[in-house]
Design a protein around this nucleic acid. Structure first.
Length: 277
DNA sequence: CTATGTGTTCGTGT
DNA sequence: CACACGAACACATA
C-alpha cells in the first residue's frame, strides 16, 4: 500500500510521541516483520528510551531515540502505523507496540511484507544513508534520470519508475499517475523516450511527489483525518480501479493491464505506444 | 474456490 | 557482467 506520501503520513502519526519515553514494548511472538533484527534486543533496548525525532525517505521511516537507538520501519504492502490509547490490547496483526505513558504506537501488517530494523550506533544505519536522493532534492536531476533510463533502456518505462535506486518512494499508483500526466505509454521502452519526454517525466515525478505530499501528508503540522480524503477527483488515482473508468482529461475509457509485473492503468487516448513525432 | 494487490527479493535465463 | 523477468512471500477481500 504505502508509497512516498503515505509513508510520510504514517510517520507524522507516530511523531506525536516525540519527547515521550518508551515504557514497554510488545512484539508479536512469531512476526516475520523482524527479519534481520532480534525482537528480544528491541524489547531490551527500547524501554526507557525517549523518542527524539523521525524522518521518512523513499518507502522507509527512521525513528531516532536517545542513547544511539534507531528504529527503522518499512510498511511493505499492507502495513500501517496507528496511535492508540495507553490501555490498547494488541490485536491479531499487530507486530510491534511501543507504549508510552500517554499512548500506544502500533505497527500492524496483515500480509507481513513489512520490516522492522533496530540499530544501535552513533549514527543512522547504512541501509538508511544509502537511500537514493529524494525526488524533491536538488540531486534528483533530469540528467540523472536520463542516464538511468539509458541504462535501463530495454525495460518498459513503467517498470523503471518503480526502481527505488533512482525513484525513491514511487510505487504503483504514483508511477501510473506520473506517466498519465506526462502522456507517456507505460509499455514504452525506457530507451525510446525523446529528450523532451525524459524532461517531462522528470518534471512530473517531482510534481506528483509534491502534490501527493501536500494532499496526503498534510501541510505544516496538520494531518488529514484519512489517507486519501484530499486527493482531487481530477487525478487518475480515483478512476484507476473503477470499472468503466474514464480518463479525467480526455473523458475516454481507461485501460488496465499488467505491465512490468504490476497492474497498470492508462489512458490510451492520451498515452500512445507509437507517438507521432 | 479462485483471483488479486499502492512491495521487495531471489533465482534463472539472456 | 548486467540486466530483465517471473516466482515467492502471506493473508484479507471480492
Amino acid at each position: 500500500m504505502p508509497e512516498l506520501a503515505e509513508v510520510e503520513f504514517f510517520r507524522k502519526r507516530w511523531s506525536v510521541a516525540e519527547g515521550e519515553r518508551i515504557a514497554a514494548v510488545f512484539t508479536h511472538p512469531r512476526a516475520k516483520i523482524f527479519r534481520g533484527t532480534d525482537p528480544a534486543a528491541l524489547a531490551r533496548e527500547l524501554p526507557g528510551a525517549r523518542l527524539l525525532d523521525s524522518a521518512a525517505a523513499a518507502k522507509q521511516m527512521l525513528f531516532h531515540f536517545n542513547g544511539d537507538r534507531w528504529l527503522g520501519v518499512h510498511l511493505g504492502m499492507s502495513g500501517e502505523l496507528r496511535v492508540e490509547t495507553s490501555a490498547y490490547v494488541p490485536a491479531k496483526h499487530d507486530h510491534l507496540v511501543l507504549r508510552t505513558a500517554q499512548r500506544a504506537l502500533v505497527f500492524a501488517d496483515p500480509r507481513m511484507f513489512g520490516r522492522v530494523d533496530f540499530h544501535l550506533g552513533a549514527g543512522p544505519p547504512a541501509w538508511w544513508t544509502k537511500i537514493a536522493p529524494p525526488l524533491l532534492s536538488r540531486a534528483f536531476t533530469a540528467a540523472a534520470v536520463a542516464a538511468f533510463l539509458r541504462r535501463r533502456r530495454r525495460a518498459p518505462i513503467k517498470a523503471v519508475l518503480l526502481m527505488q535506486e533512482r525513484f525513491p518512494g514511487i510505487g504503483n499508483w504514483m508511477a501510473d499517475e506520473i506517466l498519465w500526466r506526462a502522456a507517456i505509454h507505460p509499455q514504452r521502452l525506457a530507451g525510446s523516450l525523446t529528450a523532451a519526454e525524459v524532461r517531462t517525466l522528470w518534471r512530473e515525478c517531482r510534481q506528483v511527489a509534491r502534490l501527493a505530499l501536500r494532499t496526503i501528508a498534510g501541510v505544516g503540522g496538520k494531518l488529514p483525518p484519512d489517507l486519501n480524503v484530499h486527493i482531487p477527483r481530477t487525478w487518475l488515482f480515483w478512476h484507476r480501479w473503477e470499472d468503466g473508468g474514464l480518463c479525467p482529461i480526455t473523458k475516454k475509457p481507461l485501460v488496465r493491464e499488467e505491465v512490468g509485473g504490476r497492474t497498470t492503468c492508462w489512458s490510451p487516448a492520451r498515452q500512445k505506444l507509437h507517438p507521432r513525432r
